[in-house]
Amino acid sequence: MSSTKIFLKSSDDKTFEIDETAARASETLKNIIDGGCLDGVIPLPNVSSNILPKVIEYCKKHGGDNGSSKKIANGGVDKDKEILPDYDEEEDKREKVRVDELKKWEEEYMDFDQQVLYDLMLAANYLHIKGLLDLTVEKAASMIRGRTPDQIRENFNINSDFTPEEEEEMILIEDEWDDEWAFD
């Protein structure tokens, strides 16, 4: 049983096709689908054509993953609640393999520069795809960890908008923070 196709239109008027089950990974799309706009094309003015395929790729991987057939058979009832009681060791093992695979896939999937990351993070936020948002946020955080402010700026291509005097005082600001923190 194949699922319904949904068409998404990017900000630069390019149309992309996605399965309904995959689209349901996005809360925003899910609400639109449940709202009854299935016939037409869903416009996404905040997502550009170079980012949308990336989003769709993620949705395909996560929206159409395990239990999707069951989910359709059950008429869209929450799949996790249906599956949970049936868990056995076999299922556990398969789940583990699946998670490992998924991790590998994520690693490859997340291999892009900060510009794509920025757009993808915004798209994930706009489309309410929690998993993708977590991934992108984590990647951004990993680009900050263990780096000095200068290195962080370089990583994210940010120009410091602090005046040189403020930069000088940065250490002092930290000290003040410490004091404030102390009296919480």
């Binding site: 946020v137 263990g146 402010p149 962080i152 994210f156 940010i158 120009n159 602090f162």
Partner: peptide, 19 residues
């Protein structure tokens, strides 16, 4: 969301020193 992932305080402080 990003700042919440910076559990080490100097990462957090440096995060605040970027812009």
């Amino acid at each position: 969301l990003v700042s919440k992932r910076l559990s080490y305080i100097n990462d957090f402080v440096y995060f605040g020193a970027v812009c």
